[in-house]
Design a protein around this nucleic acid. Structure first.
Length: 285
DNA sequence: AGCTCGACCTGCACGC
DNA sequence: TGCGTGCAGGTCGAGC
């Protein structure tokens, strides 16, 4: 499910259920997510209050009153669902792939579901967050004010890889994945096959970097405003569908006309680094 | 160090 | 109907 807009949508959906609320009970129906759940997972959470629920790239971070931070990642197929039934009920009444259930003092039950189990939950002392191996080295937040063409060009300097590979790399920019990389490159009219290092330098290179940084910000902001994308039946925590999939310009649109103004090209699918890329070979150079 | 690729897992859509 | 194949919004770690 999750690239930055979906994770941000999940975060906003979970806020009223989790932020400021205490864990009344925690049930782990499966320990073997991407990594095994930490020892004493339920015990360490129980009784703690979620002081702040934030996001870094595609990670959700719950800072707890206990001094720990709960790090959550949705992998490819993870989702959260909020329900409000009787607490004892809700925790025991769980369906297929409901791996973790939090019963919160807000009255909400928060259920983590993840068929493929590429998602993860970790618990680490908050003081170690910044130096943690999963956090250290994550690139700039693309929606932050100081992310711009120059920052992007700097991160791509000397990179022999394609723009597609570079933007998919969380160390270069945080939060982009297969969909939004394709979408941003189409908006910026840049080829996914172009070398990332060609964003560096003056003149035309600077124009490319500025256009790409602006396109990344725009597509992410538009997608968040639409509540993210809902593919394959995925839902937001409140059960609503995100709507941005209807506004994809290229993703999964091979054979359709390029939507860029004045362009008569046709969207094509290619494979880069083992993943589908969708782009317009006519206007994306 | 950077880069490519296989591996991790389940489910679904497709063709035979 | 069943079975095989390929594909899916991620990312880690082995091996060059």
């Amino acid at each position: 499910m999750p690239e930055l807009p979906e994770v941000e949508t999940v975060r906003r959906g979970l806020l009223p259920a989790m932020q400021g609320a205490r864990f009344l009970s925690v049930s782990a129906h499966r320990q073997d997510l991407r990594w095994p759940l930490p020892p004493q997972f339920a015990t360490r959470l129980k009784g703690a209050t979620v002081e702040r629920l934030t996001r870094r790239g595609k990670y959700l971070l719950a800072a707890l009153s206990s001094g720990d931070t709960l790090i959550m990642h949705l992998g490819m197929s993870g989702s959260f669902r909020i329900s409000n039934g009787l607490a004892a009920d809700a925790a025991s009444r769980h369906g297929a792939h409901d791996h973790v259930v939090f019963v919160m003092s807000s009255g909400a039950t928060v259920t983590f579901n993840d068929p493929r189990r590429f998602g993860s939950m970790l618990l680490i002392p908050s003081t170690e967050l910044e130096t943690h191996r999963l956090m250290r080295g994550i690139g700039p937040e693309p929606l932050d004010g100081d992310f711009d063409g120059a920052a992007l060009a700097r991160a791509c300097a000397g990179r022999a890889v394609s723009l597609k590979a570079a933007l998919s790399n969380q160390k270069i920019v945080a939060g982009l994945g297969n969909i939004y990389v394709c979408e941003a490159l189409n908006r910026a009219r840049l080829s996914p096959r172009r070398k990332a290092s060609t964003l560096g330098g003056g003149g035309a290179a600077k124009k490319r970097a500025d256009a790409l940084a602006a396109a990344i910000k725009a597509v992410l902001a538009d997608a968040i405003e639409a509540g993210g994308s809902s593919l394959r039946d995925h839902r937001r925590p409140d059960g609503e569908l995100g709507l941005f999939q209807h506004r994809f310009r290229v993703y999964d649109r091979a054979g359709e006309p390029c939507p860029n103004r004045g362009c008569t090209g046709t969207i094509r699918r290619i494979v880069q680094n083992g993943r589908s890329t969708f782009f317009c070979p006519v206007c994306q150079r």
